[in-house]
Amino acid sequence: MKAWLTALIALLCSGLALALGAAMLALPEFAVRLPGQVAANLDASGVAHPVTAVLLNFRGYDTLLEVAVLLLALLGVFALSRHASDHAHPAAPAHPVLQTLARLLAPLMVLVAGYLLWIGAYAPGGAFQAGAVLAAAGVLLRLAGLLPAWAQPGRLLRGGLALGLLVFLAVAVAGLPQGELLHYPPALASPLILLVEAGLTLSIGLTLAGLYLASAGWRQ
C-alpha cells in the first residue's frame, strides 16, 4: 500500500476518534430514564436481576434473534466444504498432566455452568455465561485429546444445538393467544425464563464449542 494512502487513513481514523470523543463530551442529559423504567417493572419480570430481566423479558427479541445468529454461524462453518490442506498440522499428543487436569476440571466446569445459570435470576450470570463455561469445557477436553472433533454431528447433537432456539420459540409463540409474541404471563414468568435459559445454556455451550470442534475436524 502506498505510503501517502497509509498516512491519509491513519489521519482520518485519528480525526474520527477525536470527533467521536468531542461528540461524547457534548452529549445532552438522558432524555429517557431507562434504569428507572427497568426498576419499576422488575417485579413483574419474573427475575430479580435487571440485566437478566432485560435480556429474557423486556428485550427478548434481541436474545431470540441472537441465538438464531449463533446457530446460523455454526451452519456456515459446517457448510464450508473441507479440503485437504497443506497447512494442517497433526495434533500433538496431549501431555498427561493436561489430560488429568482436564478430567478434573470438566465436571467442575459443568457445575459452575449450572450455578451461573441458576444465579442469573438474582445476580450477574445467566445463560450466556453458563454456555461460555460449558463451551470452554468442551474446548479444554478437545485440547487434551479426550473429545473427538465433530466430523459429522449426529442426530442427538444436532437436536441439542437447536434445542435452545426451539424452546425459546415455543415459549414465545405460547404467549401469542394472550396478546403478543414473547409476552409471558407474570405468574409464570419465573419458571418460563428458567426453562428458556436452561435450553439456551445447553445450545449456546454446544454451539460455541462446535464452532471450534467443527473446524478442528478439518485436521484429519
Binding site: 431507562l34 434504569p35 427497568v38 435487571p50 440485566v51 430481566a53 432485560v54 435480556l55 423486556f58 428485550r59 434481541d62
Partner: peptide
C-alpha cells in the same frame, strides 16, 4: 448503571 446497554 443502565441495564439495557449492558444486556445489549
Amino acid at each position: 448503571i443502565d441495564p439495557v446497554p449492558q444486556a445489549m
